[in-house]
Amino acid sequence: MDNIRESLLKQSAATRKDRFGRYISLAALLLIVVVVLSIFWFVASKGLATFFANKVNLWDFLTGTKWAPGQKDANGHPFVGAAPMIVGSFLVTLISALIATPFAIGTAVFMTEISPKRGAKILGPVTELLVGIPSVVYGFIGLSVIVPVMRHLFGGSGFGILAGAMVLFVMILPTVTSMTVDTLKSVPRHYRESSLALGATRWQMIYKVILRAATPGILTAVVFGMARAFGEALAVQMVVGNAALMPQNLTSPAATLTSVLTQGIGNTVMGSLENNALWSLALILLLMSLVFNSVIRAIAKKGAM
């Protein structure tokens, strides 16, 4: 009797191990949460210092078109207009996504619907390879191929938004394509069968049923690509021209949030306005990545119905 009582009251070894494992996972989780929160806190506190410590007007920051944090205007306000970089970042992102989407869909349709065997054999490994290439290599190719082509076609230096967008297009294409391929593959086979059984041609089946059923997934792929394009620094910096000016056209030198950040962050003194202003740019990047994330979530939720 006492034996049973004791064994019921005492924890077994398995229970203790189970609890130990639970604590370890919980600790790991907590660590990640702490790290993420500290990153947010760090970027936010530094980025917001521009507005609280240095008294820069938020509206001036977002809409001002002159970026020269070291200099002051007649009223003693520093020139911290981030609009050129914000516009630059959005333009390279949108243009690259705009070009990449039809290419990605076309390639993915070919790989899944038209020639699955060849697609799996050739395009699959190629895509994986392209994803793995470091961005500096893309930047270098952009520098030695795309910029000269732009110069030849549109005159000027060849550096600019368009060159940046082209490099980003090549960089995000593999990701967007492989995600689109996964989406198309996950469209149930019975959609294909039943559309053909209703007298659809193969082409009608692809664009009226498969692409339509896959739209949420394709959108997710594109937003993923946009998030990557928005955050890419090195390759863009190498071809965009790095002039923090409001872009007059797509082939004049310009800048993006990331290109200004990578160039400037090592050359400013911690705590100075010049440094804080760069952190404000980083804060915008962080907030945008949150936006991209929530868009992806919203699409997923809507797609699941």
Binding site: H190, Y191, E193, S194, S195, A197, V209, R212
Partner: peptide
Amino acid sequence: FQQPNPFPF
């Protein structure tokens, strides 16, 4: 077909 399979429309 055996499985009811309306399109997601």
